[in-house]
Design a protein around this nucleic acid. Structure first.
Lengths: 129, 129, 129, 129
DNA sequence: GTGGTCTAGACCACT
DNA sequence: GTGGTCTAGACCACT
């Protein structure tokens, strides 16, 4: 497991961990049932505090993406949890709008944004197989 | 000027204001040279702290979107400021990736995300004319 | 707000706080929209660490019972969130079974258990009015 | 003996075993004097650590529900141990309250909770005969 | 060895 | 003043 953490980023460390693990699940780098590194291992590997890793793991468990088994460790959940809530949809729609606004002011064309989006989906498509 | 502010949202109020003004610029609701309400007016209208509006205006001025003229007020800048920095590009790329991840877990298809994106661009196209 | 925390109990402090606040909501001691004490105030009042209160508040927010507004504080949510998930139902059913088992071995009759249950409901009935 | 163990559950394995054995005693599936499987057998059957089973048996013996006879094995005690301590009563009362709170937020009516409780008692009634 | 809880204390962003 | 994040470090329960 290779993590790329950006300490200068404004997004909290624990959120970066969450996104990386979700990413690895969707790209197939992490498989259902696979064991994640222990909190201590990952925290020492990333040179951050165990509590921070713990927070990330707990939030991932809350959303059903990982499962912790007492005294044994943490594992990728067997079933892929989809939660299509109407609130989430609205939130994502407003994120899209903000992204488009940012693109306009950064001089990024519609063409490029759509390409990037397609590319990300392409790298993740295999998860469903 | 109609603002839709969500005090319960996790995105800070001042950022919400920034996005709304940028949005109105891009959709044509605000035109170059147009006068913005004073900090006092806007803050009392929105029932929020004047400091919050002030912070939004200051950041908008720093990025060249609005211009303050001493004793006259604040106005939408005449020239559309493009800041295509390579850092920004990277940042947006990672935002796209996070958005795609969120869509996957929210059960939102590529199709729908692309549609939403196109729609936003469509509503803003006229600004370049 | 009066909190009764049992440091000797095996249930974590943060969970005790959660149950107390839920309890006060259901019995009407806390009303929708009402402001909760700040994390610092409550923690110093209870002589526990602010992080512990923070954890309780965050979990309550996650389940929609309270709402935090940036820089303003934490408030009881306006709308009462009911989440009748089938998993939760199962969990409660097994809790009931465990409770009944415990009653048997503690020599507590069905009669008494039912009375206690009725009593609790009675004290909370008014919430719906 | 059939055990239904949930490794993903937050209640410790050894507690799950305890409750299951108590349950089987009260429903009549296990009779006074009946022999329990050895720690080794049960642990290999359940695919869990022998220490976990050992812990469960020890705690059951401490509360007088089972009896170990050197070189012979472990048996269900002949006499039904009742331990009506005032502390236990208080503890159960607070468990009832927590249960009622959980029911409220899970949208489970008083009616249904009482039904479930009655049902459990019904399935166990015969033990006293 | 595994995760869970809690403390003490620092620093930051937002209002 | 408000909550959010993070660190350092301790202790505990479970396997």
């Amino acid at each position: 497991m290779f993590f790329r953490i950006d300490t200068k980023s404004s997004t909290p460390l624990y959120e970066q961990i969450i996104y990386q693990i979700k990413d690895m699940c969707l790209t197939g780098l992490l498989r259902p049932g696979e064991k994640l590194p222990s909190i201590r291992d990952l925290s020492s590997q990333m040179v951050i505090n165990p509590n921070t890793v713990n927070k990330a793991y707990q939030e991932l468990e809350r959303s059903g993406i990982i499962v912790t088994i007492r005294g044994k460790g943490t594992f990728i959940a067997e079933d892929f949890p989809l939660t299509p809530l109407p609130e989430k949809e609205k939130k994502i729609q407003s994120q899209v709008r903000q992204l488009v606004i940012d693109c306009h002011y950064a001089g990024i064309s519609k063409q490029r944004l759509l390409e990037w989006t397609e590319q990300c989906f392409a790298e993740m498509e295999d998860r469903s197989s």
